[in-house]
């Protein structure tokens, strides 16, 4: 197993949400290696620091849609423009499921759009889902490149 095989970067500005995701993860049978950023700019800073260390690249990037400094979509755009990170699966998650937000996320290269889990049970399911994803889903060419 690589050192980054279960590494997930989570950008989330809400402290309570970060705590609850972290708690759900710690309670999981097979916890993920979560790294938290409290906004999009922090996520970008973390990725910058990992640019030349491919073995430490996250397996998935989870981005809250609305965040201060840089929001999820701006951060996603940056990620998709970086040769080192452009194929890392990225998920936008938000309490909004507004069709325009969903459409913009996919148009900018999101691999999934997830409605934020509102209960602890659903958070546990999200962690399990991310775990399965790190195991089974391979990074691939992006819709943006096809277009």
């Amino acid at each position: 197993m690589n050192s980054n095989s279960r590494h997930v970067l989570v950008a989330e500005d809400d402290e309570t949400d970060r705590f609850l995701i972290d708690r759900a993860n710690k309670k999981a049978g097979e916890p993920l290696a979560l790294a938290f950023a409290s906004n999009g700019q922090e996520a970008i800073d973390q990725l910058e620091g990992l640019r030349s260390k491919p073995h430490l690249h996250p397996k998935i990037i989870l981005l809250d849609l609305r965040m201060p400094r840089k929001d999820g979509l701006v951060t996603l755009e940056w990620i998709r423009a970086q040769p080192e990170f452009k194929t890392v699966p990225a998920i936008i998650f938000s309490s909004s499921s507004h069709p325009q937000d969903v459409a913009r996320a996919y148009a900018l290269g999101a691999n999934a759009f997830i409605v934020k889990p509102g209960s602890n049970d659903l958070r546990a399911q999200l962690i399990a889902f991310l775990g399965e994803w790190t195991r089974f889903v391979l990074p691939g060419p992006l819709p943006l490149e096809v277009l």
Binding site: D14, S95, G118, S119
Partner: peptide
């Protein structure tokens, strides 16, 4: 708008469980 409510709900569950 719903985020504070979700926090109340989830953190109360945390208190109950833990």
């Amino acid at each position: 708008m719903r985020a504070p409510l979700r926090a109340i709900q989830s953190l109360t569950e945390v208190i109950e469980e833990d």
